[in-house]
Lab assay of single mutants.
Amino acid sequence: MTSCHIAEEHIQKVAIFGGTHGNELTGVFLVKHWLENGAEIQRTGLEVKPFITNPRAVKKCTRYIDCDLNRIFDLENLGKKMSEDLPYEVRRAQEINHLFGPKDSEDSYDIIFDLHNTTSNMGCTLILEDSRNNFLIQMFHYIKTSLAPLPCYVYLIEHPSLKYATTRSIAKYPVGIEVGPQPQGVLRADILDQMRKMIKHALDFIHHFNEGKEFPPCAIEVYKIIEKVDYPRDENGEIAAIIHPNLQDQDWKPLHPGDPMFLTLDGKTIPLGGDCTVYPVFVNEAAYYEKKEAFAKTTKLTLNAKSIRCCLH
Rank of each mutant, 00 (worst) to 15 (best):
T2S: 14
T2Q: 14
S3V: 08
C4G: 15
H5T: 14
A7L: 13
E8W: 08
E8Q: 14
E8G: 11
E8D: 12
E9N: 15
H10A: 15
H10V: 11
I11G: 02
Q12G: 14
Q12M: 06
Q12W: 01
K13I: 01
K13G: 01
K13L: 00
V14W: 05
V14T: 00
A15E: 00
A15V: 00
I16K: 06
G18T: 03
T20E: 00
T20K: 05
E24V: 04
E24I: 05
L25N: 08
T26Q: 04
G27T: 06
G27S: 09
L30A: 01
L30T: 02
L30R: 03
W34G: 04
W34L: 02
L35E: 11
N37A: 08
N37K: 08
G38Q: 14
E40F: 06
E40D: 08
E40W: 00
T44F: 08
G45R: 07
L46S: 00
P50R: 03
I52S: 04
N54T: 00
K59G: 12
K59V: 11
C61W: 08
C61M: 13
T62A: 14
T62Q: 14
T62I: 12
R63L: 01
R63Y: 08
Y64T: 07
C67Y: 11
D68K: 02
D68N: 07
L69P: 07
R71P: 09
I72H: 11
I72E: 12
I72Y: 10
F73M: 13
L75H: 13
K80V: 13
K80R: 14
D85A: 14
L86C: 12
P87G: 11
Y88M: 07
Y88Q: 07
E89D: 06
V90I: 14
V90R: 08
V90Q: 11
Q94A: 12
E95D: 11
I96T: 07
N97E: 12
N97G: 09
H98S: 14
H98M: 14
H98N: 13
L99T: 12
G101Y: 05
G101R: 07
G101K: 07
K103D: 09
D104C: 12
D104R: 13
S105F: 11
D107C: 12
D107G: 13
D107I: 09
D110F: 03
I112C: 13
L115P: 00
L115Y: 04
L115N: 05
H116K: 11
T118V: 11
T118K: 06
T119R: 06
T119L: 03
T119E: 08
T119V: 09
N121I: 00
N121F: 01
N121A: 09
M122Q: 02
M122L: 11
M122F: 03
G123R: 05
C124Y: 03
T125D: 06
T125A: 12
E129C: 06
D130Q: 02
S131H: 09
S131V: 07
R132L: 08
N134I: 06
N134Q: 13
F135R: 05
L136D: 04
I137A: 02
Q138I: 02
M139E: 05
H141R: 06
Y142A: 01
K144Y: 00
T145H: 10
S146F: 08
L147C: 08
A148T: 08
A148P: 01
A148Y: 14
A148V: 07
P151G: 01
P151V: 03
V154Y: 00
V154E: 05
Y155D: 06
I157K: 15
H159L: 08
P160Y: 09
P160D: 14
Y164M: 14
A165C: 12
A165T: 13
T167V: 11
S169W: 06
I170L: 13
I170Y: 07
K172C: 01
Y173H: 14
Y173E: 02
P174E: 10
P174K: 15
P174D: 06
V175A: 01
G176T: 14
E178C: 15
V179C: 13
G180P: 03
P181Q: 00
P181S: 01
P181L: 01
P183C: 10
P183R: 01
Q184H: 15
G185K: 04
V186D: 03
V186E: 05
Q194M: 13
M195K: 03
M195C: 10
K197R: 12
I199V: 14
I199T: 04
K200L: 11
H201M: 06
A202S: 08
L203T: 02
D204M: 00
F205G: 01
F205S: 06
I206G: 06
I206V: 11
H207P: 03
H207E: 14
H208R: 11
F209S: 04
N210M: 06
N210G: 04
E211Y: 07
E211C: 14
G212D: 00
K213G: 07
K213H: 13
E214F: 09
F215N: 06
P216C: 03
P216D: 08
P217M: 05
C218R: 03
C218T: 07
C218N: 02
A219T: 14
I220E: 02
E221V: 00
E221Q: 07
Y223W: 01
Y223T: 06
K224G: 01
K224F: 05
K224E: 07
I225C: 15
I225D: 15
K228V: 10
K228G: 08
V229K: 03
D230V: 09
D230T: 10
Y231A: 02
E235T: 10
E235F: 07
I239T: 07
A240T: 15
A241K: 00
D249G: 11
D249F: 03
D251V: 03
W252I: 03
W252Q: 02
K253D: 00
P254T: 01
P254E: 10
H256C: 10
P257E: 03
D259E: 09
M261T: 09
T264M: 08
L265I: 10
D266W: 00
G267N: 09
T269P: 08
G274R: 02
D275I: 06
D275R: 08
C276F: 09
C276T: 15
C276Q: 15
T277V: 13
V278P: 05
V278I: 12
Y279S: 01
E285M: 04
E285N: 13
A286Y: 08
A287W: 09
Y288M: 15
Y288G: 15
Y289T: 15
Y289W: 12
E290V: 09
K291L: 04
E293K: 14
T298E: 00
T298I: 00
T299P: 04
L301D: 06
L301M: 14
T302C: 08
N304E: 14
S307D: 05
I308D: 04
I308S: 00
R309Q: 08
C310V: 14
C310Y: 09
C311M: 14
L312K: 13
H313W: 15
